[in-house]
């Protein structure tokens, strides 16, 4: 059956090989779940940036400033990676960004006010829960479709390895000697879990 299409609608048949959603050639469309993963990772790296910014605001002239600055620079790089992935897949950022902006800075500055060792304890707690979270994501992606998500998995792996490094450096710098180490890390870990759950959805 032959059918004449109105000119306004003809493109629907023609545009088969470019992605409808962005300017690139057709790339594999990712599912909503992976969108959520990218959203929470982006929010996490953004939060980590703010934590280090808070720590640097307080400890900017102390002897561990160089170390914190180095870790911050790495976090900036991570955020850049996820920024690019977010734009590429057109993922909606979490609506809680302004909140993480303030909360991250306050957590960093607050822990740094208690001393360098407390700042390290905060880093250790945050990085530990982030590494765990990245590992969960990697397992999920590997189970689902490792070839399709190769790029995202590579990004997560790189970030995870460096976060693990931060965790170990924090331990080396005497995080465990901070006052109320156990209570503080437990509280921060609970906070991180809640933040992860919220940022995936909202």
């Amino acid at each position: 059956m032959s059918l004449r299409l109105s000119p306004a609608l003809r493109h629907l048949r023609a545009s088969k090989f470019t992605c409808n959603n962005c300017l690139r050639k057709k790339h594999t469309k990712i599912s909503d779940e992976v969108h959520g993963m990218l959203r929470v990772d982006h929010a996490g790296e953004f939060g980590a940036n703010r934590i280090y910014a808070g720590q640097m605001a307080v400890l900017g002239r102390s002897k561990s400033a160089a170390l914190i600055q180095h870790m911050w620079d790495q976090e900036k790089e991570h955020k850049k990676i996820f920024d690019d992935l977010m734009v590429k897949h057109r993922v909606r950022p979490t609506a809680l960004m302004p909140f993480w902006h303030i909360a991250g800075f306050l957590l960093g500055a607050g822990s740094a006010v208690l001393g360098e060792k407390s700042a390290m304890a905060c880093t250790v707690a945050v990085e530990a829960s982030i590494v765990e979270h990245y590992n969960d994501q990697l397992r999920k992606l590997a189970n689902e479709n490792p070839e399709k998500h190769a790029e995202i998995m590579a990004a997560i792996k790189k970030c995870r390895d460096e976060e693990q490094e931060h965790h170990d450096t924090g331990m080396d710098k005497g995080a465990e000697q901070a006052p109320l180490y156990k209570a503080m890390t437990a509280a921060i870990k609970v906070g991180c879990k809640a933040a992860i759950a919220l940022s995936t959805k909202v």
Partner: peptide, 12 residues
């Protein structure tokens, strides 16, 4: 998106 907005915060 096509106007060139690449913001990833509340501005989005």
């Amino acid at each position: 998106f096509f106007a060139g907005d690449r913001s990833l915060n509340a501005t989005w």
